[in-house]
Amino acid sequence: MKMKRNILTVATLVVAFIFSGSSAVAQDFALWPVPDEAAAVENPVAPTKESLQSGKSLFDLQCKACHGESGKGDGLIKSADLTTPEFLAQTDGAIHYKIHQGRGVMPSFSTLPDEQLWDLVNYVRSLSMVRDSADLKDATVSIYFNDADGQRELTAKVEETNAEGQVVPVAGMKVNFAVKTHFEVGFLPIVAATDHYTNDNGTVTVAFDDTLIGDAKGVLHVVASIEDMDYAPAQVTEAVEWGKPNPEDYWTDRRALWKNNEYVPLWLLISFTVSALGIWLIIGYVALLARKIKLEGDRYENDVNT
């Protein structure tokens, strides 16, 4: 249910685009005046891991399409590079103001809770800090299916190898559960709206959504992925026969006017064939009569000759 509300929020958010029509996209930030009082506002949210995490989720949803994964303005449309020194020279308050207000093609995000905007500011600021992927820790995630007591549950376990070479559980790791769709970018969240973090055993368990539709046999591909700024992305996909079978009843062998010749409606096939044949048989009969006229003429000429 909460997932739906989320969608609605998103839907209302992006509405706020203002199309400028011109190519005033690559803008000099000095030209976007920010009131002094707005620029002077202090960032109340510290750039903690949680804040950056939240900012990243928001950025991926709302900003990535245009500003690009790395914020360099290389997304679907030409947009501001968020990693330049000029951009970073601005105060947090100024960045917050611009996200809040929007201008031209840049939509206004004034409907987002203020705290989330500050998370976003924190994350945007962190974009320019090049993170070496070697610095990221590695963790593995695995899925367990449990349908005892008729209650279907999914459990993900996150583990890492510590300095001593031992495999130990990772606590407090955010785990996302989803099912794969046909599209490589399409992952349908199984449980949305709330975040799930691993407990001290490195596991997190969620109830399964029984309404999901799988393939013809009901096979679903469940994906569990971890999301943490200190860890390299990792995910695991497991097939499970927990989905509803794909109805596949859309395409039928029913005859229809819009289908190809193999599926001609019978009434049409019969009436067309019968009338076509009928007409041409009659024409054939008339041709036969003409031939008879000719034969009769030959006979008559023979008679006259002899």
């Binding site: 969608i7 992006v14 399409a65 679907l76 599209f183 992952f187 539709i213 794909n246 859309y250």
Partner: peptide
Amino acid sequence: ACPNGVYWFGDKLEDTVTNGTTHETVK
């Protein structure tokens, strides 16, 4: 290609659609 999240595309039988911009996937 849509920068504004206008399009959701998906599969009726699977009952999922994915947003072309945000890649959000919903029923």
